[in-house]
Amino acid sequence: MNKVRIGIIGIGAMGSNHAESLVTDKIPHAELTAVCDISGERLEWAKKKFGEQVKRFHNVDDFFNSNAFNAVMIVTPHYDHPSLAIRALQAGYHTLIEKPAGVYTKAVREMNEVAKKSGKVFGIMYNQRTNPLYRKVKDLMDSGELGELKRTVWIITNWYRPQSYYDSGGWRATWSGEGGGVLLNQDPHQLDLWQWICGMPKRVRAFMDFGKYHDIEVEDDVTAYVEYDNGATGVFITSTGEAPGTNRLEVTGDKGKIVIEDGKLTFWRLRVSERVFNREFKGGFGSPECWKCDIPIEGDNTQHVGIIENWTNAIRNGAELIAPGIEGIDGLTISNAMHLSAWTDRWVDIPLDEDLFFEQLTQRIEQSTFQKKQNDVGTLDVSGTH
């Protein structure tokens, strides 16, 4: 294959950025050949921006039946990711979805099963996996340099959003429009990186406020505690109502501690494992010798372009995916578990009860202000304003 011909479903804010990356040759051996959106205004924009050589479709059926491409990027509202990915994969197209993988794991699990049987290259836009900071932390963990995991803490509160942000679209911050708040809109990257680096927890206890800082129906403040199979623990704190916010990841193992903050990676490295020191030291007060190491970071943070290029290379020559689409369920599982824990006021084991989660989510969708508005007009907005 000389060039991967790509069609994009959803050319809102994010979809149009991906489209422009393709038409400006930022991704070698890839070209934009088609776009699809229910918004006539966005299609007119595409006509003016890309000309007649990029085909435009208002209807998804016509888009999939056009044979105008051999790979599809799905950049639509969250709920549509699994269903559109299933259609694309079953139609024989390589597929890349935006984050999150979906709103509830039950739908994402069905998508993953289709992907595994399709034989097509299936990726997800977890562009933070290209960040050399997080890649280095994963390397230190995977290599055993940090030792056995003991504790992990991520404070990610630099997502501040004013009320006007939420007022900009009736679908924003609603159960029926987005399926969640800060966890599902702002945090999918961090939840993915958290499990990518530290592994999946075995159970979750979460506390969250819904509309604490804003006039919205979904969560805008979350504190969650998790436990891992080996006894390690973790805390995840996030909010869209704090200014100034913090973005600090701290991972502690028995051989030291790693901190990422302000674009720097610092490793407090123990000369001997804390567990070994604890067993062998006989001097009363004391602690292992510790070296503070500023870890050099090499490589570019290629972000979205890097993920698209990697995906197209996987299609063309079998390159290993940085972010396989089937891994999108992992971060979403943690998010779903956090929601279910807060809704039911109890611990939630992982794997979680997917039927119970969907039941609880459905109740909230039915009471959602956006759903009521859509019922009044008899349609649900699925435009590509991601």
Results as ranks from 00 to 15, higher is better:
Leu321Met: 09
Ala337Pro: 08
Leu332Val: 10
Pro288Tyr: 14
Gly283Ser: 06
Asn310Ile: 03
Ser335His: 13
His339Tyr: 15
Gly231Lys: 04
Gly231Leu: 06
Arg275Ile: 00
Leu321His: 12
Glu289Asp: 15
Asp330Lys: 13
Ile322His: 03
Asp353Cys: 10
Asn278Arg: 09
Ile315His: 04
Arg279Gln: 11
Gly331Ile: 01
Arg346His: 09
Ala319Ile: 02
Ile237Cys: 08
Tyr225Trp: 01
Ile258Lys: 04
Asp345Cys: 04
Gly284Asn: 05
Asn317Gly: 11
Arg346Cys: 13
Leu361Asn: 01
Asn278Val: 00
Cys290Phe: 00
Val305Ala: 11
Ser341Arg: 11
Phe281Ser: 13
Asp345Ala: 10
Leu270Trp: 14
Glu309Asp: 12
Pro324Ser: 11
Ile258Leu: 15
Lys292Ile: 04
Gly318Met: 01
Gly299Tyr: 04
Leu352Val: 02
Arg271Glu: 15
Leu321Ile: 01
Asn317Ser: 12
Gly318Trp: 11
Ile295Pro: 07
Gly283Ile: 05
Pro324Asn: 06
Ala342Gly: 14
Val226Cys: 09
Glu250Val: 15
Asp229Met: 03
Ile334Phe: 11
Asp254His: 08
Asp262Val: 04
Tyr225Gln: 10
Glu359Cys: 09
Thr240His: 02
Val272Gln: 15
Arg346Tyr: 05
Asp330Tyr: 07
Asp254Ser: 08
Asp294Arg: 13
Ala232Arg: 10
Val276Met: 05
Glu354Met: 14
Ile308Ala: 02
Thr312Arg: 00
Thr246Trp: 07
Trp343Lys: 07
Leu356Arg: 12
Gly234Tyr: 09
Arg269Gly: 03
His339Gly: 00
Lys255Gly: 01
Thr344Gly: 05
Gly283Arg: 09
Asp294Gly: 09
Glu242Pro: 03
Glu320Val: 06
Ser239Gln: 10
Phe358Tyr: 13
Glu250Leu: 14
Thr333Ile: 00
Ala314Cys: 09
Val276His: 13
Gly331Cys: 03
Asp262Tyr: 12
Glu242Met: 13
Asp355Val: 06
Cys293Arg: 13
